[in-house]
Design a protein around this nucleic acid. Structure first.
Length: 288
DNA sequence: ATCATACAGTTGCCCAGTTG
DNA sequence: CAACTGGGCAACTGTATGAT
């Protein structure tokens, strides 16, 4: 009998069943509403019987709710509480909030902080107001690494090895679109080297322009990235480069200082060798 | 109203992989 | 290494839809 590719064949600590259960939970997106077993099987590439058992188990445990009328599932409060607990315990989110609010007031752009999940950045904190109409992403929203300012800033901040792995994954994911996307990433690298921030001018969504800056925490909790974005007519490319980007860099420096952080290393010409953190701040431990 | 068909979901069986 | 567990295949059941 054909067996599934077992991660645990090489990693005895990896629990495949748990990973699959979590894959099912991950299959739900913010705009999906209800999903049936069929759709879940298609999204996770798991066999129908496996999905059937996993949805049954997750429902029993309170992570999914079945809507009898449609025989479909939605995420249940137990799943929400996981996300809430994760966000609530994120020190950087709380500490950066007044700084994000201030920058939002100054620029009229939505200011967010995000962390990586696979090929996306997920918003973990967001400051926006009536001024920021057009950029209405909320905490938990997912944006691509490859084409957004936040994602590219994050990418540029990764150590060589991690970055190479991520680039490979994106190359596979984007297929024929990759050469064009890669060009955009390379332009961002140059801009991060030169100015300390990345930009995206309509490369993710036509009408959204944004700047992004990354920050690596040296308590081992990883790299985050901030962005400041607005509708294209409000943030022209010229304004992004001369006004928004520098302000965002300044904001991140202030946050680092508030964290008791070490000054960020200056951007340096890289001959393709990156130091961990690049032009990204290393921040001392103890923010949690 | 009845039947045929298609599709989604479930069950039973069995074997490979995992665990203690 | 024996006992247990996970999960894939095939077959089954239930439901929706359309044709007659």
């Amino acid at each position: 009998m054909k067996r599934p590719a077992k991660k645990s064949a090489t990693d005895r600590s990896f629990v495949v069943a748990l990973a699959r259960g979590l894959e099912v939970l991950r299959a739900f997106g913010p705009n999906d509403g209800l999903l049936g077993n069929q759709e879940l099987a298609a999204r996770t590439k798991l066999p129908k019987p496996t999905i059937s058992r996993l949805t049954y188990t997750l429902t029993k445990l309170g992570y999914l709710t079945q809507v009898p009328r449609f025989e479909k599932y939605q995420l249940a409060p137990a799943a929400m509480s996981l996300g809430y607990a994760a966000v609530a315990n994120l020190g950087l989110r709380h500490l950066s909030q007044p700084f994000r609010d201030e920058l939002m007031q100054q620029t009229g752009g939505a200011v967010a902080v995000g962390a990586r999940d696979r090929l996306s950045m997920i918003y973990v904190g967001q400051a926006r107001s009536s001024l920021t109409v057009g950029v209405q992403l909320d905490v938990g929203s997912r944006i691509p690494i490859a084409t957004t300012a936040m994602g590219r800033a994050y990418l540029c901040a990764l150590p060589n090895e991690e970055r190479a792995i991520l680039m490979r994954e994106m190359r596979e994911h984007y297929g024929s679109r990759w050469p064009r996307i890669k060009e955009g990433i390379e332009r961002s690298e140059e801009m991060v080297e030169k100015r300390g921030f990345a930009i995206s001018v309509g490369e993710w969504q036509d009408d959204v322009h944004a700047a992004g800056v990354a920050m690596t925490l040296n308590d081992g909790t990883g790299t985050y990235a901030f962005n400041c974005g607005a509708p294209a007519f409000r943030f022209t490319e010229e304004r992004l480069i001369n006004d928004i980007g520098p302000r965002l860099v300044a904001m991140v420096r202030k946050i680092e200082a508030a964290l008791g952080g070490v000054a960020a290393p200056q951007p340096r010409k890289s001959d393709n060798k990156r130091t961990k953190g690049g032009k990204v701040a290393r921040v001392v431990e103890g923010i949690r």
